[in-house]
């Protein structure tokens, strides 16, 4: 086990940020912690990076206890906080050199590890970090977090506020890194990134809702999800909001996703009901649930 979290809780004044969380992450796993803002992701990350003390419970990262062995632990992890935390007034190269120096290493020593990432920003190495685009900042931050070849890499919401192109590139980089003997623990508020992880944990209001591989989570989901397209999403939402068998009913882009409160039902019934209420162009279709459907269902419970 690369990461072992046992019954961790943490409160700030009267806010319970993290409630009795237990988790295990295997060696070289790409593990995703998925949940919205305020779910407790950052607090958990800080506890694991030995930046915060838990109120109760214990955790072990790469074999080091986060409380007792924090000095050794800090040498063996890479940590990239949610906010861009490098020195904006230092150049790309100066930032990287600085972080290499304070970790007792130099760029050459681990260049192999960061090469794929750093090569993309190397042309701008004389530019100040503050003048980089969001995607490039993120690559620099990742290079800095990797410069000492950590065993476990903590990435707290690395893709928040980054455009889709950079997001995709970032996940490709993580996949490559994983092959280089690094365990990656990443958090994200984007449900669509779940499928890119080996295993995921849903977190909401400080609690873990479910842990599994993305495909198993989808496969084991008990409810049926109906995708509905109509001429007016807004009106359909209102109609279904009053429908007696509606379990849940959410807009999903151009369509809406509906779950029924009965175990067994005919989707065409719903189509008929909508048409009776004066909605046109109704198409209903049984679909494979999306990660977001499942998250919403789990967080309702």
């Amino acid at each position: 086990m690369s990461l072992h979290i046992n019954n961790i809780s943490k409160s700030f004044k009267d806010l319970k940020a993290v409630k009795h969380i237990s988790l295990e992450v295997k060696e070289n796993e790409l593990f995703g912690l998925i949940g919205p803002d305020g779910a407790g992701k950052t607090t958990l990350f800080r506890i694991l990076a030995s930046l915060l003390l838990p109120d109760e419970g214990s955790a072990n990262v790469a074999g080091f206890d986060v409380i007792k062995d924090y000095k050794k632990l800090r040498k063996n992890i890479g940590y990239m906080p949610g906010k861009f935390s490098l020195y904006q007034d230092l150049t790309v190269e100066e930032n990287l050199n600085f972080f290499a120096t304070i970790f007792d290493t130099n760029i050459e020593e681990n260049y192999d590890l960061i090469k794929d990432i750093y090569i993309q920003i190397e042309p701008f190495k004389k530019r100040k970090a503050g003048d980089l685009s969001g995607g490039m900042k993120q690559k620099l931050a990742l290079s800095c977090a990797l410069i000492h070849k950590p065993k476990v890499l903590f990435l707290d919401e690395p893709t928040t506020g980054v455009d889709p192109v950079s997001r995709k590139e970032f996940w490709d980089m993580l996949k490559k890194l994983q092959k280089k003997d690094i365990t990656i623990f990443v958090s994200t508020p984007y449900m669509d990134e779940a499928a890119l992880c080996d295993r995921i944990a849903f977190i909401n209001q400080g609690e873990i809702l479910q842990v599994d591989t993305p495909s198993a989570i989808v496969k084991n989901f008990a409810k049926e999800v109906i995708n509905i397209r109509t001429n007016s999403i807004y009106k359909s939402l209102q109609v279904l909001g009053k429908y007696q068998y509606t379990h849940s009913n959410y807009p999903f882009g151009e369509s809406l996703h509906y779950m029924d409160s009965r175990d067994d039902f005919d989707p065409n019934e719903i189509k008929k009901h909508l048409e009776d209420e004066g909605i046109e162009d109704v198409e209903v279709q049984l679909i494979t649930p999306e990660i977001e459907d499942i998250f919403m269902e789990l967080s309702r419970e």
């Binding site: 990076a49 930046l51 940590y79 906080p81 906010k83 490098l86 304070i102």
Partner: peptide, 13 residues
């Protein structure tokens, strides 16, 4: 404020 203290703390400094 910038958050770099977090990284300095996590380092062996």
């Amino acid at each position: 404020e910038v958050g770099s203290m977090e990284i300095l703390l996590v380092s062996p400094l």
